[in-house]
């Protein structure tokens, strides 16, 4: 194994799962978050990390409800933000933590993005991790190539999950993403179809807002495992969209209890979490 600062740093990480999708807005970040939460819940000792390499549009901090947190430097590198507080089993790193103001834009060309990704991979003090889930921006460009290049020395521990929505427009981009994984020789654990159907809250009618079945058919055609479909879950959308606010408005009933992991508790109540539990199970089995 080639010895680089990155391979040394990630020596203590058992599995690295890259969440990919050619298309934007299909739910990569929400799937990343759900995957991390499900892996976290899979065992009381599981340690999970999330790395957000969507540098110009980081959504992970918001979804985990750790918007506005800062990253600290230690002698052993950057200390990630822990979404579960003092339990410190869910670590998270995103460019969002480095911005002074959350409305600031990160206007970077490729080489600077490459440098940031290298730093994220080599300088973050993850500690022992069972899973590191990496959220990516849409497309197949600088960020993706940089990731693959930097992670090449530990290629054997890499795998990926492809997220899509059912429409034809998204599937075209997903095909490009599949071609990418083949070109760079990245194993695909499976395809997840997101936003598959919406249940009307008034009459219970299921509408296929973005059509349906596209993810399964592409998985079959390209000979990839299909992990399942996730319907649109407004409860989940709201939870991931406003999790930090919710935390502020709910009064702490038991003042001397440890700050509990509210997001996890609320997530367990959503319908999506049950479906995702099965998917996470399949993923763990494959690993």
């Amino acid at each position: 194994m080639e010895d680089t600062p990155i391979s040394r740093r990630l020596k203590s990480v058992k599995n690295i799962i890259i969440v990919l999708s050619g298309k934007g807005g299909v739910g990569k970040s929400s799937v990343t978050t759900q995957l991390a939460l499900s892996l976290y819940a899979s065992s009381p000792a599981a340690r999970v990390g999330i790395l957000d390499v969507d540098l110009t549009g980081p959504s992970i901090p918001r979804m985990l409800g750790v918007d506005g947190h800062g990253v600290h430097q230690s002698t052993d590198g950057w200390v990630p933000v822990y979404a579960d507080g003092s339990q410190a089993r869910l670590a998270c790193m995103s460019v969002g933590f480095l911005l002074k103001n959350k409305g600031d834009s990160v206007v970077w060309r490729g080489p600077k993005k490459n440098g940031m990704i290298r730093q994220f991979l080599s300088d973050v003090r993850w500690g022992e991790l069972d899973y590191l889930v990496i959220d990516t921006p849409p497309g197949t460009s600088d960020e993706h190539l940089s990731l693959m290049e930097h992670l090449a020395p530990i290629h054997s521990r890499l795998s990926s999950v492809i997220v899509t929505t059912p429409q034809a427009v998204a599937l075209v981009d997903v095909m490009k993403c599949v071609s990418f994984t083949r070109t760079v020789n990245l194993p695909v654990l499976g395809v997840i179809e997101n936003m598959s159907g919406y249940v009307c809250p008034c009459c219970g009618e299921i509408s296929n807002v973005f059509s349906t079945g596209g993810g399964e058919s592409i998985a079959k055609r390209e000979n990839m495992p299909f992990l399942g479909s996730l319907p649109i879950d407004t409860e989940l959308v709201t939870l991931l969209d406003a999790s930090d606010q919710e935390e502020k408005t709910i009064p702490v009933t038991n003042a001397d209890a440890l700050p509990s992991f509210k997001l996890m508790e609320s997530y367990k109540r959503t319908a999506s979490s049950k479906i995702f539990e099965g998917m996470a199970g399949m993923i763990i089995e494959k690993l």
Binding site: G22, R109, G110, P111, T140, S141, D142, H144, L145, M175, K176, C177, V178, S179, F180, T183
Partner: peptide, 8 residues
């Protein structure tokens, strides 16, 4: 199906 894997 072809991916355009280009840097900036």
């Amino acid at each position: 199906k072809d991916a355009v894997m280009w840097r900036g």
